[in-house]
Design a protein around this nucleic acid. Structure first.
Lengths: 200, 200
DNA sequence: CGCAATATTAACCATTTGGTTAAACCAGAT
DNA sequence: ATCTGGTTTAACCAAATGGTTAATATTGCG
């Protein structure tokens, strides 16, 4: 039973689970060790200290997060299909890891300087998207709107239900299953909502 | 210089500052004491322990938050003005305490059971709003949309810029001042965005 | 095998941190 | 002035926690 394969990845998985659920500050190294089924000292054998372990987790999470999402609109040329693809990719990603937006927002708020680099992925896609909006505006396809503001709105509509999940569950008294159904519905309704609001 | 007036309130203010900025887990009692200009032991004289102090802060914050926001549409009968009033009140509140949405989302996520009661304020206003949407839908004033989904969208568009503030600052490279200008613009643009998307 | 490098563990250490205690302080009443 | 109640403090304590160490186990290799 000893010398399990790929201990480092097992640690990273365990750490991701604990860190994303509790956040850096409340996460306990002991708990990560238990979750990974190893000794606490072994954590420090693979990762210098809590900060490094955390950064390993955050880097992986942030990059997968923004990677998926921005890559989704790489082969889109028209704005409206791009918005649909973006929203779908965003929500699908969130279904996989629902705690991620809150986690990222939170840690980024705690240490913007130190973690800023990890969210830089997808710069080109983002620029391309903003340009697409600009063009659509010039062509009169959509109303006069600041492209960056539109992007903020889109991300808000995608991410917020997950960030506010506990509040929604309580306020509207919905179950896990009902929440999932709601998100499924949003894969269609959110793009519609956005496009209706900007179509010229 | 001794025996300052209203020590309890001074503590609560200091605690709110520290807790909202760092979150329950990372907040240090010592720091709260220093911020309040008192001895650490005095905290425990006024508040049994960290949990109680935290709940004092959270309760006050959550109630003021939801209080302001839901009260804003008490004297609205038509949907569109109600939406405008709601968004304006929401954003104005956020300008006062920009960290609040992330703080509340975060702590609610950590301990949904224990804190759920504190976000219950404004039940009636919320019900009234949902009813208003339902009526507008029946009257054909707006498209066919689930009232609760509309509410989620509205709150998303209001809260998310603040939750994602550090990310926005980094991604779009905007300053504090630019952020404030953006929020000011949103007081008009968000209601427009919403109404355009639902108007029949 | 036997040896060297890597992987893993139990026990330990130093610091941080929430919380307590007992003494001092200060106000107003007697 | 002094007694009494609430207020404030310095010093202290125990538990939790991140991190280390030195010894043990395992693996790959000549």
């Amino acid at each position: 039973m000893t010398s399990q394969v790929n201990t480092e990845q097992r640690i990273l998985n365990a750490a991701r689970k604990v860190f994303t659920q509790k956040g850096m500050a409340a996460a306990r190294m002991q708990e990560v060790a238990e979750e990974a089924g190893i000794n606490k000292a072994l954590l420090h054998y693979y990762f210098k200290d809590k900060q490094h372990l955390f950064e390993g987790v955050f880097k992986e999470s942030a990059q997968r997060q923004f990677g998926c999402i921005w890559d989704s609109l790489k082969q889109c040329d028209c704005l409206f299909p791009a918005i649909e693809a973006f929203v779908t990719a965003y929500l699908d990603r969130m279904i996989e890891e629902p705690m991620l937006p809150l986690f990222i927002a939170n840690e980024l708020n705690r240490d913007a300087k130190g973690l800023a680099d990890f969210v830089d992925r997808g710069k080109e896609s983002r620029a391309r998207f903003l340009h697409m909006v600009e063009e659509a505006r010039k062509n009169g396809e959509i109303i006069d709107i600041d492209p960056r503001e539109l992007l903020v709105n889109i991300m808000a509509l995608c991410a917020h239900p997950f960030i506010a999940q506990p509040m929604l569950k309580h306020i509207h008294g919905i179950s896990d299953e009902a929440f999932r159904r709601m998100i499924q519905k949003r894969r269609k309704s959110v793009p519609e909502f956005i496009i209706r609001s900007i179509r010229a």
